[in-house]
Computed example of a mutant assay.
Amino acid sequence: MKKYIENNLHFIWNGDNEEIESIEDLKVTKQELINLIENKSAVQKIGIVAEFICHLYLRSNNFKQHFLFRNLEEKGMKKGFDGLYLQNDLYFVYESKSSLESTMDSTHNGNISEAYNDLKKKIEGTNAVNDPWRNAYNHSVHRSVNFNENISKTLKKLSQDYVQKKFSKIDNYNIIPSSTIYLGARFATIDKDDLKVRIESLTKDYKFQKIDVLCINKNSIQQFINYLNE
């Protein structure tokens, strides 16, 4: 796992076209992540680490990353969608939700429901404040991201429509809602059969073109932070 993180960390943060010229590049990337995490609230910290682990998993399953984990605009997490991926010529929008160890009643169904509703609100323009498509477009055309002309043109048109309040329907999109639960001393592996039944029951009335649901149990974020500080 550590080796896999080492092989992907720099590219998740900077984009797949950002070459590693020396070991110093990886050290800088680790420090940038440390700088991002430190001084954040507990909720923000678990959110950052949970999202990173999910990106690791998606990349290992042949989802091609078309965004940077780092924010282009400020020293915080990016606004808009948590990610945009391409797999088999289909693009997916991704949203991550996570729960603190102290949240005793947290469930994957609860987090997935929250992630789906956030995606729906962003896509359909409910309480529209920030244009999520403009942010996705800005990431898609960055030189460090593998350029895909069709994706960039689509994102630009969606952004233009969004500004003009011509909103889309989530029914037409491929989506990835994810849930990460931190359990600490209560850690237990997921009962996959039970989870599948619960998730299928939850999503049977959801609207989407295609959906991939990602659920992860973790002990804590400390091992990842220890790794960054090595």
Rank of each mutant, 00 (worst) to 15 (best):
S41Q: 07
K75Q: 15
N62T: 10
K165T: 13
S60R: 09
K207R: 12
A185S: 15
I34Y: 08
V49M: 00
L158W: 15
F67W: 04
G47P: 03
S220F: 02
I199E: 03
H10T: 02
T189Q: 10
L56W: 02
S179L: 02
D191H: 05
A115I: 04
W133K: 05
R70A: 15
L100F: 09
L33C: 06
V129K: 11
Q223Y: 10
Q223P: 06
H142Q: 11
I225P: 02
Y227L: 09
D171G: 08
G15T: 05
E19T: 12
R134M: 13
G47F: 04
M77T: 15
H55V: 09
K156I: 13
K122N: 11
S99G: 13
L36V: 07
K97Y: 07
R59P: 04
H10D: 03
D194H: 13
I53H: 07
S106Y: 04
F69D: 02
N219I: 15
D193M: 07
S140H: 00
M104E: 11
E73I: 15
K210W: 04
S178H: 01
Y137D: 06
Y162W: 12
I53S: 09
V145L: 02
N150G: 14
G125N: 03
E21Q: 08
L100V: 04
M1R: 10
E32H: 14
S22M: 04
F224H: 01
E21L: 11
I190L: 03
Q223S: 12
T29A: 03
W133F: 15
V49P: 01
E19P: 03
V213N: 03
V49S: 02
I53W: 07
D118H: 07
S41F: 10
D131W: 04
L9Q: 00
S102Y: 05
S98G: 05
K204C: 15
L100D: 06
V141G: 12
D193P: 03
H142F: 15
T103H: 10
M104D: 06
E24V: 05
R143C: 07
F187Y: 15
Q31W: 05
F92P: 02
S140Q: 04
V129P: 04
G76C: 06
G83K: 01
G80Q: 00
Y85I: 07
L84E: 09
N229W: 04
E124C: 09
L86V: 15
S22V: 05
V93W: 00
E114W: 00
L26R: 08
S159K: 01
L119F: 00
H66D: 01
I170T: 08
T103Y: 11
I20H: 02
A136V: 06
F92C: 07
K97A: 07
L202G: 07
K40H: 12
I151R: 00
Q223R: 09
F147A: 09
S99K: 11
E149N: 10
L33K: 01
N39E: 15
N61C: 08
N226P: 08
K218W: 05
I5F: 06
Q209T: 11
K121E: 14
